[in-house]
Nucleic acid binder design. Structure first.
Lengths: 246, 246
DNA sequence: CGCCGATTTGATCGTGGTCAACAATAGTGG
DNA sequence: CCACTATTGTTGACCACGATCAAATCGGCG
């Protein structure tokens, strides 16, 4: 447990939402300028360090949030203590459980992250008066449900090799070019992992060792390269894609 | 494939939605009487036999529906042909993918079923004018997402024994007393399976054989009884629950 | 009674988990 | 800048679980 350096804790939300990096890509895109300002007054920025939890499982659902930067994981722990990552959260994604008494999984930063948090009751009542916002939220929830279901099929039906391959492809595609602020939407051939092997293992429902073995196997096959421990270069995307579909 | 006893087949939709069995439990509960009638005119009843598909994977998303009676499964097939059940649909549940161009998984009846179908475009525009309906749909989608995520953790982290135990408990709880129209919300100690072992296996991501072995193991342990092949009696719920949490 | 599909049981095998040792990297303080 | 330590990643040996293939049995129905 590390101590929180409060320099970044409450962070200056000096200016409003108008220059928010995700203003037009989050659910806020459903609102006009005035509405965004109103909503903005209800929320506040919060910085999280890698590993820091934002919401605990089965907590009373007290807050919801938009992700501005960084990544977080949703974790569901089964009764016997084992854990499974049930979702990865990227910038612009919405977190939390509106309209329900409890959240059913924990939310933890897996890289340093910035989120825009709202008290759930504030958000709920604001949403109730803004159908366009609810509509946007509904669309996102439906998409997330689709994604989750597809991932579910992956988890129970694919072997470790396929899982790793698909994970890397997914990562390369969803991870925006971290360095530049550019919106390189296309998959990067090389990228920096914001987390370590254990997290990959959690996400894929594998052991760290198995993930490791598959990665080195891919390296030996010349499909991957590891410039550093935390960066991955996909040398032969096609081969990787082939494995993922196997 | 058993023959459909047509006594209940094309069911008299003679009258409107007012006497619909799920009128007050489906998303329609968000609407007042007049609104329901309007929506009702857009939809039509459809009967499905066990095994009959309603929506195909990656189809253009042309219809959505409410489930009136029976059960259906959502199946996602991975690139290599393997299939995984990604969701079970019970009466009052909503099916389909509004606001999106395609459905990402197939929907197939696993017992004889009745659904109330709408063309997606009709539904979409109706919903756009009725925020309360969208709100209800959002709530349901959020719930479904929670359920799916929990199931996901189950699939990747639990052993076959736990899976079977949890499946049975879940079934006993969600399956309304099929015989009577009563709303026995509590878990039934004994119930009729609307489908065979292979479907259980699909749902749990196991082979039929493994499901079978676990079931007979539970029978031998005195936890379960099988009055007939298709009916299951939970003799010792507590033990079963214990296994599920193991 | 005899047939067909569904279920059950049995034998074998491969994948991935676990435990343990080891290597490499990043951090820390002299 | 270097040594020392803690953390993270890698490799190996072994084992358990569940898949697969094959065969036996059961149940319903003509």
């Amino acid at each position: 447990m590390r101590v929180l350096t409060d320099r970044q804790a409450v962070d200056t939300l000096t200016d409003g939402c108008s220059d928010c990096a995700i203003r037009t890509h989050s659910i806020c895109a459903a609102l006009d300028h005035a509405e965004v300002e109103t909503l903005g007054k209800l929320g506040r920025r919060r910085r999280l360090k890698a590993g820091e939890p934002l919401i605990w499982e089965d907590d009373e659902s007290l807050l919801v949030a938009n992700v501005v930067t960084g990544m977080l994981k949703l974790v569901s722990s089964t009764a016997d203590g084992r854990e499974q990552v049930v979702g990865m959260v990227y910038p612009t994604d919405f977190i939390g459980r509106p309209f329900g008494p409890t959240s059913h999984h924990s939310v933890t930063a897996i890289s340093d992250a910035t989120v825009c948090v709202f008290s759930r009751s504030d958000f709920d009542s604001f949403a109730a008066e803004h159908p366009a916002l609810e509509h946007k939220l509904l669309e996102r929830t439906l998409e997330e449900l689709d994604r989750t279901r597809k991932w579910m099929a992956l988890l129970s039906r694919k072997g470790s090799k396929e899982k790793v391959a698909i994970f890397l492809l997914d990562m390369a595609q969803r991870l925006p070019d971290a360095g530049t602020g550019s919106e390189g939407e296309d998959a990067q051939p090389e990228f920096e992992l914001p987390f370590g092997r254990p997290v990959i293992a959690d996400v894929l429902g594998l052991s760290t060792e198995t993930v490791c073995r598959q990665l080195t196997a891919l390296k030996r096959a010349g499909v991957l390269e590891f410039p550093t421990r935390r960066s991955i270069r996909i040398a032969q995307r096609d081969v990787l894609a082939g494995i993922g579909s196997g």
